[in-house]
């Protein structure tokens, strides 16, 4: 056998071994989800008797779903999460990119340097330091979606501005804006017609990272939204678990429902989500 053929064979074997290792790891990683999936179609008694059986002694049942949907008020809760996530994300993108634009284009102005430094420095503040004063200052406007949305945006501002700052500084040449000005655009028009469309990749990244964070956030919404009909999915899941923790079939259905929307989205947008998160993490 020639050396080349030997090396090729060695590589093939190595790949096969790595593939098997990956497969085993993969199964370990999704094991908890699989477990929820098989138990969601069993009755409460069957789950307790044998949580590992593929099919319970009493066969398939779909009864867990309608009951969980009703008791968790899932449709309302899902709608609440959707409203909060979508509006917070859009607002974050618009406001942070505009802020970054002004900061980049007035770099020698002290006010801009000050605000930008404040934002960078504030990134080390954990939410735990802000929650008590936040509740104390804004106690009168709690229990409203708008408050939650504006708070979400405020908290994401520093990170998002930082990312747009980098993108505008490196990717948007000043000449382009000058050309637009000569063609008769004012600053506002220049921004929306020329600069903003060129920021698409960063918009996607900021949008994906923040949307995921808003969708899954628990602590802030739980402090702001105390009324039941305003609950988002994470709070509703927590409340549901507290009430029905013994009814394990219902819990399985509720957990699956809580995970399902984002998993479905992931199937379709997987490439964008992975890319967005990677570029966000590497730049941040």
């Amino acid at each position: 056998m020639t050396d080349n053929a030997k090396a090729a064979r060695k590589k093939k074997i190595a790949h096969a071994i790595m593939w098997v290792v990956l497969l085993i790891l993969f199964i370990c990683f999704i094991f908890p989800f699989l477990l929820v999936l098989i138990n969601v179609f069993k009755t409460k008694g069957d789950i307790t008797a044998d949580p590992l059986a593929l099919i319970g002694a009493h066969g398939f049942t779909f009864n867990n779903f309608p009951e969980a949907i009703k008791k968790m008020n899932f449709l309302t809760v899902f709608g609440n999460s959707l409203i909060v996530t979508v509006s917070s994300t859009l607002l974050t993108i618009v406001l942070s990119s505009m802020t970054a634009f002004v900061i980049v284009r007035n770099q020698r102005w002290k006010l801009c340097t000050l605000i930008f430094s404040l934002m960078i420095a504030s990134m080390v503040i954990p939410f735990q330091v802000l929650m008590v004063p936040l509740v104390s200052v804004y106690g009168v406007v709690l229990n409203s979606r708008i408050t939650l949305i504006l708070m979400h945006v405020g908290f994401s501002m520093s990170m998002a501005v930082f990312m747009f700052h980098g993108a505008i500084k490196t990717n948007i040449p000043l000449e382009l804006e000058e050309a637009a000005t000569i063609d008769g655009c004012n600053r506002w028009k220049t921004y929306w017609k020329v600069v903003f469309p060129l920021l698409k990749p960063t918009i996607a990244t900021v949008g994906i990272i923040n949307a995921m964070a808003y969708w899954n956030d628990y602590l802030l919404p739980s402090l702001v939204l105390k009324k039941k009909d305003l609950y988002t999915i994470p709070i509703a899941t927590q409340a549901f678990y507290g009430t029905y923790s013994t009814d394990i079939g219902l819990i399985m259905a509720a957990l699956l429902l809580a995970m399902l929307p984002i998993l479905i989205l992931y199937v379709f947008l997987q490439r964008y989500i992975v890319e967005g998160v990677t570029s966000g993490a590497v730049k941040g």
Binding site: P51, Y241, L255, A258, V274
Partner: peptide
């Protein structure tokens, strides 16, 4: 495919993940 699979836990919030694992530890 594997990359996408290993990333899945990050999609879901800590509250839900905690309850899923509670079931795994306490029952399975």
């Amino acid at each position: 495919f594997f990359r996408a699979g290993f990333f899945v836990p990050n999609l879901i919030g800590g509250i839900v993940l905690g309850y899923v694992w509670k079931f795994v530890f306490n029952r399975a």
